[in-house]
């Protein structure tokens, strides 16, 4: 009976509904004492009622679920190209700095997949900025004056004005931090270092690589923080003021703050749009309570956080999947919505999930974009789901909660383009 209880979980369908009221409390974990220096930032869904100042609508109109999945597919394919080293050769896709960039962008059309935002402050005096968080990119940036629309987009806060910040400076072309931009470099103009970043969903930002004080919380400030002062953006950022890069290369916030916070960070993405999560820089020095797996690096692209998958269980039963299917590793990404698995693994997961759901007789619903296993739960007050557990190299496992199994009534997984990808 205990095994059966761990194999299935029953959840109220009311929990699938999107609430218009924010349960505005930081989780207990965020408030708990942490050894050493740490800065804890409030993290929210950009379109939920907990968005900064309660102005979710100001952060861009919520995209349709189908549009989100379309953008998600472009991002997933882009990451896979970068990790495999094929990005430079792929038509229509490019690494930052490519001179042959072709970017399908829709100015002001908010279908970006970066769904989580934090508020920090920039400059002296400090000016609040609401930024998307992205573990899949390195360079942080904000829109800066002058920034006419277009080529910039409208944002909820006043544009950051570098001329009004006493601690601001443009990075000179001769500076080491300019030459270290490498793929993100965009030449030199008037002695100032130019930057450019292109994202997998087709968005771009260009401007002046700059330095200023970044205030994370009232008592945690980072002097000389390097970021992009964006003067031309295209694409999918409508409403937000910029982006906070949490990738692994030297330009990211994590790298720049490593002398203070030890290169350690964690985040908690809230289970619903009306609850609050957090990002913690620094924090617990021990891994007590965490299920851990080695961090790996893709030789083709050191930006990404990569782990090794070892297997998947559905309803407590391990799926029969050859370990070689997972040999390419898995990118842990906050900006991709739906987990992508090699087709062989996805097929096994889908079959096991459908079989486990069959006894309950839930009506099927049409596929939604890339999601092909959907149900109509409208006649049900509660639904019972098989648990899904993802195992990692070294024995770690994620036993997914209900918020990690379904999205919009569909199994929240999708296949990659091929087992060898």
């Amino acid at each position: 009976h205990a095994d059966a209880a761990r194999s299935y979980v029953t959840v109220s369908t009311s929990s699938f509904a999107v609430s218009s009221t924010c349960a505005d409390e930081l989780p207990g974990r965020a408030a708990s004492p942490r050894n050493g220096t740490s800065a804890v930032l409030r993290l929210t869904h950009r379109h939920g009622p907990c968005a900064p100042a309660g102005k979710a609508s100001a952060l861009g109109s919520p995209p349709s679920f189908l549009d989100t999945l379309r953008a998600d597919q472009r991002r997933a394919e882009y990451i896979q190209r970068r990790v495999s080293g094929a990005a430079a050769a792929a038509p229509g896709m490019q690494l930052a700095g490519s001179k042959a960039a072709t970017v399908p962008a829709n100015l002001g059309f908010s279908i970006g997949t970066l769904q989580y935002v934090v508020t920090v402050s920039l400059g002296t005096p400090a000016v609040a900025q609401t930024l998307e968080v992205d573990t899949g990119s390195d360079v942080s940036w904000v829109q800066c004056k002058p920034c006419p629309s277009p080529p910039c987009y409208s944002q909820r806060d006043p544009l950051f004005d570098p001329t009004r910040s006493s601690s601001y400076s443009a990075v000179p072309c001769a500076a080491a931090s300019c030459s270290q931009l490498a793929l993100y470099s965009n030449g030199c103009s008037g002695g100032q270092c130019g930057y450019v970043v292109s994202y997998g969903d087709g968005s771009t930002t260009t401007g002046v690589y700059s330095s200023d004080t970044l205030t994370l919380t009232g008592s945690n400030a980072l002097k000389g923080f390097l970021f992009g002062c964006g003067h031309a953006q295209q694409g999918l950022f409508a409403g937000v003021d910029g982006l906070l890069g949490l990738g692994r290369q030297g330009q990211s916030l994590v790298s720049q703050a490593s002398s203070t916070y030890g290169g350690v960070f964690s985040y908690c993405l809230p289970p619903t749009q009306n609850s609050v999560g957090y990002i913690s820089l620094g924090g617990p020095s021990s891994t007590t309570g965490f299920s851990t797996t080695p961090l790996l690096t893709a030789s083709n692209d050191p930006t990404y956080y990569i782990v090794m998958l070892a297997g998947i269980s559905v309803g407590g039963q391990p799926l029969s999947i050859d370990a070689s299917v997972f040999a390419s590793g898995a990118v842990v990404d906050t900006g991709t919505v739906v987990t992508r698995l090699p087709p062989t693994a996805y097929s096994a997961l889908r079959s096991a999930f459908r079989a486990a759901m069959a006894p309950y007789g839930y009506p099927s619903a049409p596929a939604t974009g890339i999601l092909d296993t959907c149900y109509d739960f409208t006649r049900y007050g509660t639904v019972t789901l098989p648990t899904i557990s993802i195992a990692f190299g070294g024995g770690a496992a994620m036993d997914l909660g209900t918020s990690g199994i379904l999205t919009s009534g569909c199994l929240a997984f999708a296949p990659t383009g091929g087992d060898s990808q």
Partner: peptide
């Protein structure tokens, strides 16, 4: 490569320290 997306990361605290990635369930 597979990609672990944000739907599956929800409610976990995900921790990076330069050599490991950690997952703690029901943290938010």
């Amino acid at each position: 490569a597979s990609i672990l997306g944000n739907v599956q990361q929800r409610s976990f605290e995900v921790r990076f320290d330069g050599s490991t990635v950690g997952f703690m369930p029901a943290s938010c």
